[in-house]
Amino acid sequence: MSAEKDGPLRPPVQPMLAQARESLPGPGALDGGLAMDLKWDGYRVLAFTSVRRGGPFLLQSRKGSLLQDRFPDLVAAAVQLPPGLVLDGELLVLRGDGVMDFGALQRRGAASALGRVRTLAKAFPAYFVAFDVLQVEGRRVLAEPFERRRALLEGLFAGHALGPPWTLCPSTRDRAVAREWLETWTRTPGIEGVVVKGLQQSYRPGARGWLKVRARESTEAVIGAITGTLGRPRLLVLGRYDSEGRLRHVGKTTDVSDAAARQLAGQLTAASPGTHPWEGARFSTGWGTRDVLDTTLVVPDRVAEVSVDTARDNGVWRHPVRLVRLRLDMPVDDVETF
């Protein structure tokens, strides 16, 4: 981080990160017992209020960029916050029907023209879900255990009667409650799973000291393209047909195993020129990148069962999915529509 060792924190500050787990860990996985927070599908951000009242409010992205000019509604609401505060949290936006919308959040984050910024702020209001605190009244609290930092965070919301757009992230120490969140709450757009923290853990900027568990489900998609070769596919590009019969791209898999590649090799056929609905299409290597995959289009007559998480944008899985198996028993027409 850029600030002096003992002075008030200033951007950029690296947020503490989490490593993925398939399921909730045991009670002894992290220091001093576990706390479990809801995991949100938004922008990870740090919020800074000036140590002097009336000073600038700063909103820093995970990568260190300053975003406050794109979110004037949060800047205006920062008058609710005390000076010398640094919060860690998730930035979300809501549609008019109250549903979280990652695509709208992206549009707000990319807007630069003042008129466009104001229009988007009115149509898609922003919310800050706070799940940690790094500084209180100009005093760093990174070395404090999470249990203490959570108490400070709860005291902040209660003592200042904070309300929307400032929201306190739900947190529990009860594994049964966390399992309920994974099984039911993640059906709500914008909620991905849980983040697991040790009650005695300090806040270590940039370290992957927390654990994250995303809710997953099995579903099916049509195989429309591959990388690698027909003899040894590397990953699959997937689609689903919409109500008008168009094959729409919905995502891609992680690298497939050698065993799965052997099964796929005998089942996929290269599409003839001029016959594939994706001819001329380009597929990015990752969400938000401009690098493109080197793909081979295949006849879209095979179905893959895949394991997916809940992060989606307009029907497209934002994270790579995992191939479970090839569904030779399932016709393309039986796959869920786009």
Rank of each mutant, 00 (worst) to 15 (best):
Q106P: 06
Q80E: 13
R262N: 00
A207R: 13
L297E: 02
F71Q: 02
L235Y: 01
A18V: 07
F131C: 08
L24R: 07
L168F: 08
D41N: 11
G42P: 05
A76P: 06
P331L: 10
E4H: 14
W40E: 02
D242H: 08
D301H: 10
G33W: 02
M1A: 15
S112T: 15
R246Q: 14
P300K: 03
L153Y: 05
D242L: 08
W181C: 09
R44E: 05
R44M: 04
T227M: 00
E144A: 15
D291H: 13
W181I: 12
N314W: 11
R240C: 03
T296H: 00
K122C: 10
A77K: 03
R327C: 10
G138Y: 09
T310A: 15
F124C: 10
V335W: 01
G115I: 07
V195R: 02
P273W: 09
T254G: 11
E279S: 11
G159L: 07
A76L: 13
L326R: 01
G228F: 00
L92R: 11
T254W: 12
L87D: 10
G32C: 06
T227C: 00
L156I: 10
P205G: 10
Q201S: 12
G115D: 14
G163P: 01
T119M: 14
R234G: 11
T229F: 00
A121S: 15
L247K: 05
S65F: 11
D291E: 14
L114S: 13
G231H: 01
I226C: 01
L59R: 01
G198K: 05
V335Y: 01
P15Y: 09
L67D: 01
R248A: 06
R232E: 09
E183C: 11
R179W: 09
P82N: 10
A304R: 01
F48I: 02
E147D: 15
I226F: 00
R240M: 04
R95P: 06
F48D: 01
